[in-house]
């Protein structure tokens, strides 16, 4: 069960992307998401996917991982696809059944949205697979630092994010144990009726919540007893510095994004 979660999982490696500054990686991913929304040519999408596939190869991450992610989100993708298809836009109607009608515009948007979602997931995967979750959290936290001037609790938020990420695998393990414990008390796991299902879920959720609160409580005490104080700036064991390599990475990324637009401008579909 713990192993079935692939998004947000880190792949050990030593590629240039692994070594790059997490802040730059986040920034580039952020821009990438924006760029995706302004691209509406199939050619650009295909080119984009090609470049990302090459990057996966360089980082030695199996492309299968990306497709697995898409499988796990298939429901959302199909659902939004349907909404788009049936309610997306007016104009020339090419298919009609009862209250449902499909327009040409809707078909086109649906296809584009599908491509965008796909590229989004695959691209974001590249970020999470090559960055340790804790580094990611710290980088996100650091992004808030300028807001400190306005009394925004940037340090605390960064700590909070790192703690949450740190505890996800533990919670998964704990859930597994609780399921085992309830199973051996004869809880009906494969019960068909709604009542049985609800009962099963409650019997798992309550112990999980209780133990999470308890754990949070204990963690707070443990942190305090080791002198953690809110509002004090903490030093870090590993400090990422911006270097020439990161600049090169950033420039390359920009070139990639621009080329997506250029390809889009010179192709018909």
């Amino acid at each position: 069960m713990v192993k079935s979660i692939t998004l947000g999982r880190y792949f050990v490696g030593n590629s240039f992307l692994h070594r790059a500054n997490p802040k730059i990686k986040i920034l580039v991913t952020f821009i990438y998401v924006f760029v995706l929304f302004f691209i509406n040519k199939i050619c650009s999408y295909v080119f984009g996917f090609f470049v990302i596939a090459v990057l996966y190869k360089i980082c030695k991450i199996p492309l299968k991982m990306a497709f697995d992610n898409i499988k796990s989100m298939a429901f959302i993708l199909i659902f939004t696809g349907f909404i788009n298809l049936f309610f997306g836009g007016n104009g020339e109607i090419i298919f009609k059944l009862w209250v449902f009608k499909i327009t040409k515009v809707a078909v086109i948007t649906t296809v584009f949205v599908a491509f965008r979602m796909f590229l989004l997931i695959v691209g974001m995967g590249l970020l999470t697979y090559t960055t340790l979750p804790l580094d990611l959290a710290k980088a996100i936290g650091d992004a808030f630092t300028p807001l400190k001037k306005f009394h925004f609790p940037a340090g605390e938020i960064s700590t909070m994010i790192s703690i949450s990420i740190r505890f996800i695998p533990l919670l998964m393990l704990e859930t597994e144990k609780i399921i085992f414990a309830q199973k051996s008390r004869g809880v009906d796991v494969s019960g068909k009726s709604i009542r049985k299902k609800v009962k099963f879920i409650i019997s798992i959720l309550v112990p999980l919540l209780v133990s999470s609160f308890k754990r949070a409580d204990e963690l707070a005490v443990a942190m305090e007893s080791r002198c953690y104080r809110i509002g004090f700036s903490r030093t870090r064991y590993i400090v990422f510095k911006l270097g020439v390599k990161d600049l090169i990475l950033f420039v390359c990324a920009i070139i990639f994004f621009v080329s997506l637009f250029v390809i889009g401008a010179f192709s018909w579909f």
Partner: peptide, 26 residues
């Protein structure tokens, strides 16, 4: 029957009585 190392993994009802009855009910 299996009693786990950590009892808080299985207690969840709102009273002790109900919790003991959970197994037999199942």
């Amino acid at each position: 029957g299996f009693v786990f190392q950590n009892p808080s993994y299985q207690l969840f009802e709102d009273t002790v009585l109900k919790d003991i009855a959970f197994g037999p009910k199942n």
